[in-house]
């Protein structure tokens, strides 16, 4: 670790990344996909050839062409620009909702795992009870009942994620809580919050980190599902699910491009997050891959 002999930071970082990619190609491919979409979302202004909500009345439902790469939709809007703009929605929903899930789930997981007892038991029972609701229906029903807005969609996804983070963090804390370093910290008179956040947190995050990407995949998927059903996000928002909803009308009469392209973008990004998460689980938990 001595800095004197070490190569420059970028070189080390690069070698580290190559090493990671070799250990899990799945993760590397996933990371590449996520990166591409993130770049599209950031630079949407320069990449989009048209305004995503500008309608060309004379160009309704035109098939893919040199001017409209992915064709135009039922309003005469450019599908290609809308697909690019959709990545902004995907990240705009996934990032805050996963952050909410982490912000709620990690502290609760630390606390219940460390304290144990009745509190822990009750929390886990409540989360068990939540499992009886099919998750898609749960999300849909809550968004519908709490008033349909984008902010509500984000909050509901975050709330549904929280128990998952609680579970993984709690499991790791349970394994750590009677280990020597925690006992030592306690014996030195550290307050509980310090043991939780300074001593336990860095050691208990492994599972949560791997889950983050999987949960992001789910957030992108479920928000598109909500939009497809017209719950929370309405047309003509350039969001992938809402675009597929419009395309559903046209696909059985042959205008496939309206629904197919946003669907492909959606699958690709969700797949990217899932691959990254799957690979990260292998890298972070070497025992999992070859359970021999």
């Amino acid at each position: 670790m001595s800095a004197a002999h070490a190569p420059s930071l970028p070189a080390r970082l690069g070698r580290r990344l190559v090493g990671l990619a070799r250990r899990s190609p799945t993760m590397a491919i996933g990371a590449a996909i996520i990166l591409v979409f993130a770049l599209l979302a950031i630079f949407h202004g320069t990449v989009m050839p048209h305004d995503p909500v500008r309608a060309y009345p004379s160009e309704v439902l035109k098939p893919p062409s040199a001017r409209f790469w992915f064709g135009t939709d039922g309003n005469g809007m450019d599908v290609f620009s809308r697909v690019i703009y959709g990545s902004l929605y995907a990240f705009g929903i996934a990032v805050p909702s996963v952050a909410i899930g982490l912000a709620l789930g990690v502290p609760i997981g630390l606390w219940t795992g460390y304290k144990g007892g009745l509190l822990d038991e009750t929390t886990m029972r409540i989360f068990d009870a939540l499992r009886v609701f099919p998750i898609i229906i749960l999300a849909l029903a809550i968004v519908a009942a709490t008033g349909q807005s984008l902010v509500n969609v984000i909050f509901v996804i975050g709330l549904i994620d929280a128990p998952i983070f609680v579970r993984v963090v709690r499991a790791e804390v349970l394994a750590l809580r009677s280990s020597n370093f925690v006992e030592a910290a306690r014996a030195l008179g550290n307050p509980t919050w310090r043991i939780l956040f300074v001593h336990l947190l860095p050691n208990a995050l492994r599972g949560a980190i791997a889950q983050t990407s999987v949960r992001a995949a789910w957030a992108v998927r479920i928000s598109a599902t909500l939009a497809f059903l017209g719950v929370g996000i309405q047309q003509p928002t350039p969001e992938w699910g809402a675009m597929i909803r419009q395309g559903a009308e046209f696909i059985v009469t042959g205008q496939w491009w309206v629904a197919i392209f946003p669907g492909c973008a959606l699958i690709l990004l969700v797949l990217g997050f899932n691959m990254f998460g799957d690979g990260a689980q292998d890298v972070l938990d070497p025992q999992r891959k070859s359970a021999k």
Binding site: A217, R221, A224, T225, F228, G241, I244, G247, A248, I251, V252, T253, G254, W256, A259, I260, G263, L266, I267, V270, L271, N274, M275, D278
Partner: peptide, 26 residues
């Protein structure tokens, strides 16, 4: 099979249905 399974996790159900209709009906 691992890749296909990941793909299965990632495909939106309703979109799959629409694509099926497009291919096999239209």
């Amino acid at each position: 099979s691992r890749f296909l399974s990941l793909l299965g996790f990632s495909i939106p159900t309703y979109w799959l249905g629409l694509v099926m209709l497009f291919v096999f009906f239209f």
